[in-house]
Design a protein around this nucleic acid. Structure first.
Lengths: 147, 147
DNA sequence: GATAAAGTTTACGTAAACGTAAAGGTGTTT
DNA sequence: AAACACCTTTACGTTTACGTAAACTTTATC
């Protein structure tokens, strides 16, 4: 085998930098369904992937309910009646719109961060110019130009 | 003037589909600082932009605290000591990393949605093929091919 | 076989982000 | 001036997503 194929709760907690409480909470919310050996939870590779997806959802601003909805989509994309499948396609379409909005949001935020950073660097340069004049009036001065 | 240049609280609430309670909450959290005429809040164009930014932050999964931090960056990008400005640049860099991660997250999620949608459509086609056979055995059948 | 380390359940606590309701001021329109 | 719409503050309630602590069992190790 390439890697381990089962994990303890603290294995995953360490790997993904969450607490065991968090992982147990996700199980209580039916987002994870680890096997048991006696009382002890045993996580499979699939469980590990699930956890990774939950945390990705969090980074994207999804609630656990939304992530659960996505899991249902993935899990049931082969089952269900025609009506169910059509509903799923609609849900997928809505999620796609949401993602498209996020992309726009990200673009705009990047532009604003660019401009904030530019202003910030200008202000810094200004400060250093003043400091430079002060230094040259008391001692020596270096080149004014910067690469 | 091109558009209105002041707004009531319910103007903004309607435009952005939030409650007035939400807007008042943002003011209490110092994310908005509307003017007052007597007791009544009067929102400027700047306030309106702020609100838009807050809601964009929400869509991106930012907490109000994170959004406030960004506001501070924008507002203070021209002020502060050299040390402060350098700290701001670091904060900006961290935000950029966060955004980069989000882009990756979005890409992967899109791939998964593609595959979920494909499976979904396959399952649908399968169902319709069966329905087609059933129909043809009792009555007539239409073309099997789909555009 | 003691004891420490990691696992478990149960249960109360908490921060964030509002919802909801009460009680009242302002203003305008019929 | 009565009624209605919209504004305000104050304050307690609610949901989500865990944190924290207590009490207990199972597993590893010396």
């Amino acid at each position: 085998m390439t890697t381990k194929d089962t994990y303890t709760i603290s294995d995953l907690a360490k790997e993904f930098d969450v607490t065991t409480r968090t992982i147990r909470f996700y199980e209580a919310e039916d987002l994870l369904k680890p096997a048991r050996r006696g009382q002890t939870r045993i996580f499979s590779k699939g469980d590990r992937v699930r956890l990774k997806l939950i945390l990705r959802g969090k980074r994207m601003g999804f609630s656990l309910a939304e992530t659960r909805e996505l899991f249902d989509l993935y899990d049931n994309s082969l089952k269900g009646s025609e009506k169910q499948l059509l509903l799923m396609l609609e849900t997928l379409a809505r999620k796609r719109e949401q993602i498209e909005q996020q992309k726009k949001d990200i673009e705009m935020m990047e532009q604003e961060m660019d401009s904030a950073e530019a202003r910030c660097r200008d202000a810094l340069a200004e400060l250093q110019k003043k400091a430079g004049r002060k230094a040259s009036s008391s001692k020596e001065s270096k080149a004014t130009e910067a690469g």
